[in-house]
Design a protein around this nucleic acid. Structure first.
Length: 587
DNA sequence: GCCGTTTTCGGCCCGACTGTTTTCAGTCG
C-alpha cells in the first residue's frame, strides 16, 4: 500500500479531479484539495496520525475525509473514491501533472484515445490528435507542457536562486519607467528550495516593462503574456513570472505575490469577514453582498505592505512566516514573534579545519588559525572548532584519545593567543546502537560535542528514535547535529519520533542544530517551529569545510525565522558569559 | 466537505491569461 504523504495527497487530488469531471460541488472539490495540501505539509507521516487516532488534527481533514483515510489504511482502498473514479479512464490521473492539463483536458485527451503519457507524446508529434479534432493551439500548448514536465529539474537551492534572481532584477531595474523591482514568491519567503522565480515591478508604463522583459537575454519562450503579467521560460528551463503594478498600489502587489497561497487565502477570508475584498490592487470595501465598485479607482491602494496589513488591523508578518501557520492570528493580536536576525549571531560552532584527525572524513581545508581569523573578521565574539572525530573502525579507543589530546593541546595554544574566545569541540558519530564513536573520558576533555547520525539512515522509526535518544543521554553530548539527516534533492529525512526527541532535548538542555549549509537546512523549518513550541533551544551553525562557507549563515537564519525563532532561543546569540554557563565551561 | 474570540449553518480568495467564447470554461498562481 502506498502510504507516503505525497501518495496520500495524490489519492485525494485524484478524487478531487474525478469530482471535477463529474461536476461535483465546487467546494467539496476544494475541500479535498485543501486536505491534500494539509497532508503534504505535515511534519510526520499521515499513517502515524492514523495510528494515534489523530487524523482530524490534520488541517483540512474533517469527519468525512478522516473516515476515508481510515478505510484506506485498513483496507488499502476507499470505496467512495473508487466510485467517484468509476468510468473515468485511469490515464486521466496520469496526465494531470502536465502543465496546462487539468481534469477536463485530460478527460478529453483520454476520450480521443490517449493511452498514456508516452502515447500522448506520440499522438501529438504525429498530428494524430489534431486530425481527430483536438484544438491545434491546445495541442501545441500541451506539447511544450510535456517537454517541461520531462525536463523538470530539481528545485533550486537558495544560493543559486538568489544569484539567478539578482541577475534578473539587475536587468529589470534598468528597464524603462521602472520605479522599483523586487524578487518575491518562495524566494522572498526563503523556502529551502525554489521552483521558479517571481518578480514585481512598480511602474506607470507596464507595457514598456513587459516589452523590455521579453527582450531579456536568456529568454527561450513566452509561456503567457498579458498587459501587466508575463511568464517566460529561460533556456535553462527556469520559469520566471513578472507582475507589473502601479507604484501607488505596490504594497498590495508585494503582498499578493509574496504569498504563500495559503497565507493569502486566509488573509482574504479574514478581510472578507471585516467587509473588505483584497487583491493585488489593494483593498475594496464591500457593501452588502456586492463589492462596492469594480473600478480600480475606487480601490484603496496601498503603497506599502504595512499599510495593507494595518488597514486590516494587524501587524505585518515577516515574509518568512507567511505560510498560514498561525501568523495571521498572531498578527491580529499584535503578538508576532521578534524574529532572530543575522546581526544577532555572535559565533559559529560547527566548523571543520584541516587538522589531521581523520582525513577520510573529508576534513576542512583551512588551518584552525585561519578559521579563527575569519570569525574575527565576521565580527564574532567566539568560535568553536568541531572537526570530525577519528574513525572508530580504524582506530582503537586509545588511539582516538591520543589523537584528540594532541588536537586539544594545539587548540589550547590558539586559545591563549586569540583575540576572540575559541572553543574546542568535536563532531562525533551516533552509532547504530546509540553509542557515541568517542569514549566518554575523551569527550570529557572537550568544551562541547556535536553528535550526528552519519550512517544507517534507513532505520525504522522506533529504532531511530531510540538510537538518537540514547546518544543524547550521553552527558557529554551537547548538540544534535543536522537532526533529520536530509540532503536537499538527494536524501530524505530519516524517520524518528521528533516530538519525543524534542521533548527530551527541552527537558535535558540538549541543543538542536540548525545547519545553515544550503543543501542541508536541517533542522527543517516546520520541525523548528514544533521544537520551539516544545521549549527547545537551538544553535545555528554553518558546518563550513572552508572559511568562505562560513558565509552561509544567512540561510540558517532564514530557517530559524521560518520556524518563528527569536534570538533568545538561539545560544550563539548569547553573550559569552551566558553561553559558557550553558556549556558548563570553566571561564 | 470543512469550519467558527460574532456562527454548528451558510458561507467558502481573487484575478489573469488562453482559447474560441459572443459571455465563458479551464488552468494557473
Amino acid at each position: 500500500m502506498k502510504t507516503s504523504n505525497q501518495e496520500i495527497a495524490e489519492l485525494l487530488r485524484s478524487a478531487a479531479a474525478a469530482l471535477t469531471i463529474k461536476k461535483g460541488n465546487l467546494f467539496q472539490i476544494r475541500a479535498y484539495e485543501t486536505a491534500a495540501d494539509g497532508i503534504e505539509h505535515l511534519t510526520s507521516e499521515t499513517k502515524d496520525y492514523w495510528q494515534e487516532n489523530k487524523l482530524d488534527q490534520i488541517p483540512g481533514v474533517g469527519e468525512s475525509i478522516r473516515n476515508y483515510l481510515d478505510e484506506y489504511f485498513r483496507t488499502g482502498k476507499v470505496k467512495h473514491f473508487q466510485n467517484l473514479e468509476a468510468g473515468i479512464p485511469p490515464v486521466v490521473f496520469e496526465l494531470l501533472d502536465i502543465p496546462g492539463v487539468g481534469p477536463k483536458t485530460a478527460l478529453e485527451l483520454a476520450k480521443l484515445g490517449v493511452k498514456s503519457r508516452v502515447n500522448l507524446s506520440k499522438q501529438l508529434n504525429s498530428g494524430e490528435l489534431v486530425k481527430k479534432g483536438f484544438s491545434v493551439k491546445l495541442a501545441s500548448k500541451i506539447t511544450s507542457g510535456l517537454k517541461e514536465a520531462d525536463n523538470r529539474t530539481n528545485r533550486m537551492l537558495l544560493p543559486l536562486a538568489a544569484s539567478q534572481s539578482r541577475v534578473i532584477s539587475d536587468y529589470l531595474k534598468k528597464g524603462p519607467g521602472v520605479v522599483a523591482c523586487d524578487p518575491l514568491g518562495s524566494l522572498r519567503r526563503q523556502v529551502a528550495t525554489i521552483g521558479d522565480l517571481d518578480f514585481a515591478v512598480a511602474s506607470k508604463t507596464p507595457e514598456k516593462v513587459v516589452d523590455y522583459f521579453l527582450k531579456m537575454p536568456g529568454v527561450n519562450r513566452v509561456v503567457s503574456q498579458g498587459e501587466a503579467k508575463v511568464t517566460v521560460m529561460l533556456h535553462t528551463g527556469l520559469h520566471v513570472d513578472l507582475l507589473v503594478g502601479d507604484p501607488d498600489s505596490y504594497g498590495a502587489l508585494l503582498q499578493h505575490f509574496t504569498g504563500s497561497k495559503h497565507h493569502n487565502i486566509k488573509l482574504r477570508s479574514y478581510a472578507q469577514e471585516k467587509g473588505y475584498s483584497l487583491s493585488e490592487y489593494g483593498v475594496k470595501k464591500i457593501i452588502g453582498k456586492e463589492v462596492k465598485s469594480k473600478n480600480k479607482e475606487k480601490t484603496i491602494s496601498c503603497k506599502t505592505e504595512d499599510q495593507l496589513y494595518k488597514l486590516l488591523g494587524m501587524q505585518t508578518p515577516a515574509p518568512e512566516i507567511r505560510e498560514d501557520r498561525g501568523e495571521i492570528e498572531a498578527a491580529l493580536r499584535y503578538k508576532l514573534p521578534d524574529l532572530i536576525k543575522l546581526e544577532d549571531i555572535k559565533g559559529d560552532f560547527h566548523l571543520h579545519s584541516n587538522f589531521p584527525l581523520e582525513p577520510s572524513h573529508g576534513p576542512g581545508i583551512n588551518p584552525i588559525e585561519e578559521i579563527v581569523g575569519n570569525a574575527l573578521a565576521l565580527g564574532y565574539d567566539y568560535v568553536g572548532i568541531s572537526d570530525h572525530s577519528p574513525s572508530f573502525t580504524k582506530h582503537t579507543f586509545n588511539e582516538i584519545k591520543v589523537l584528540v589530546i594532541t588536537r586539544n593541546n594545539y587548540i589550547e595554544q590558539i586559545k591563549s593567543t586569540s583575540k576572540i574566545r575559541v572553543l574546542n569541540g568535536l563532531e562525533v558519530d551516533i552509532l547504530t546502537n546509540g553509542d557515541i564513536s568517542v569514549p566518554d573520558k575523551t569527550l570529557k576533555t572537550l568544551d562541547y560535542a556535536i553528535a550526528g547520525v552519519h550512517s544507517s539512515h534507513r532505520m525504522a522509526k522506533e529504532e531511530m528514535t531510540k538510537r538518537i535518544l540514547k546518544a543524547l543521554s550521553n552527558p557529554y553530548v551537547d548538540i544534535l547535529a543536522h537532526p533529520t539527516g536530509r540532503l536537499l534533492n538527494e536524501r530524505e529525512s530519516y524517520n524518528a519520533d521528533w516530538e519525543e526527541v524534542f521533548k527530551y532535548c527541552a527537558k535535558n538542555n540538549k541543543l538542536l542544530e540548525i545547519d545553515a549549509y544550503p543543501n542541508r537546512l536541517d533542522l527543517r523549518d516546520d520541525l523548528v517551529k514544533m521544537a520551539k513550541g516544545l521549549g527547545c533551544k537551538f544553535i545555528i551553525d554553518t558546518d563550513a569545510h572552508e572559511i568562505s562557507q562560513m558565509e552561509v549563515m544567512p540561510f540558517g537564519i532564514a530557517v530559524a525565522r521560518r520556524g518563528w525563532v527569536e534570538a533568545r532561543d538561539v545560544v550563539n546569540t548569547w553573550d559569552y558569559k551566558k553561553l559558557a554557563k550553558w556549556f558548563n565551561l570553566k571561564s
